[in-house]
């Protein structure tokens, strides 16, 4: 990397809320930016993306051929690629249309597909399905302090270990009872921990925006949902919000 690492921010299909959220750490923003040479921030600039940089930060899902090419170019130029938010990590909200993308297109546009859509629209993909990604900042939207931590991890290294345990442990640390005792669906059973279970702590069930844990036991979670009267089908359906892959096991 250059002496002061050169950083670029790119936004793909998303609400740009994660980039906005980074600006929300106002009092620390200059401290953070002081550690890097910010070459480009799509949210704040109309210039073209520069070609020389060390760290690429990407928000959003890949939904067009052009986006695919641009993330490939970012990967080629960057020593480290960081994705921010659920759209980039799992294809998120844009990814909800993945399953029946062609049929949905047909239903919406019929034979009158507008030029901007016809020209290169592809089935939405997570960034990591297009290029290798070094670091992910999870959730929808991201916690900006998580972003700072991950950026510093990319700049300086860290031997911190990212647990794949799911959310309930963090929820219990918040002294929270369980939604399943109240016949309410919650995806905390299978969602990767790290956010501090803040939605359940505010009285809202987890909707899985941090992504399915690689060690998630979906089969068991379905049993839990069935037994709680919520139903495994409701769990499966909720998992689709953030386009999580659904495990094949059936409830036994």
């Amino acid at each position: 990397m250059a002496d002061t690492p050169r950083v670029v921010f790119a936004g793909l299909a998303s609400c740009f809320g994660c980039q906005i959220n980074i600006t929300n750490i106002e009092e620390h923003l200059m401290d953070v930016l002081g550690q890097v040479d910010l070459k480009y921030w799509q949210l704040t600039s109309s210039d073209p993306m520069p070609t020389d940089f060390d760290v690429a930060v990407i928000e959003g899902a890949v939904t067009t051929e052009a986006a695919k090419e641009s993330v490939q170019a970012l990967r080629e130029g960057a020593d480290a690629v960081i994705t921010i938010g659920a759209c980039a990590a799992t294809s998120g909200i844009p990814g909800m249309s993945t399953e029946d993308h062609a049929a949905d297109m047909d239903a919406v546009y019929g034979d009158k597909v507008p030029y901007v859509v016809a020209d290169g629209a592809i089935t939405p993909m997570a960034v990591k399905d297009v290029i290798s990604v070094d670091f992910e900042v999870p959730c929808c939207p991201i916690d900006p302090y998580d972003f700072v931590e991950v950026l510093q991890h990319a700049l300086y290294g860290s031997n911190i270990y990212r647990r794949s345990s799911t959310l309930c442990g963090e929820c219990k640390n918040n002294e929270r009872g369980c939604f399943y005792g109240r016949n309410t669906l919650c995806l905390g059973l299978v969602t990767r921990s790290g956010c501090g279970a803040r939605c359940p702590n505010l009285g809202r069930p987890c909707n899985g925006c941090a992504g399915l844990s690689p060690d998630a036991n979906v089969a068991q979670a379905r049993r839990v949902a069935d037994r709680a009267g919520v139903g495994a089908a409701a769990l499966d359906s909720a998992l689709r919000i953030f386009n999580q892959p659904i495990a094949d096991e059936e409830v036994s």
Binding site: C168, G169, E170, V190, A216
Partner: peptide, 13 residues
């Protein structure tokens, strides 16, 4: 162990 959700609620409480 096959049933474990790896949620760590057990150790938290």
């Amino acid at each position: 162990g096959g049933r474990c959700l790896s949620c760590t609620a057990c150790s938290a409480v």
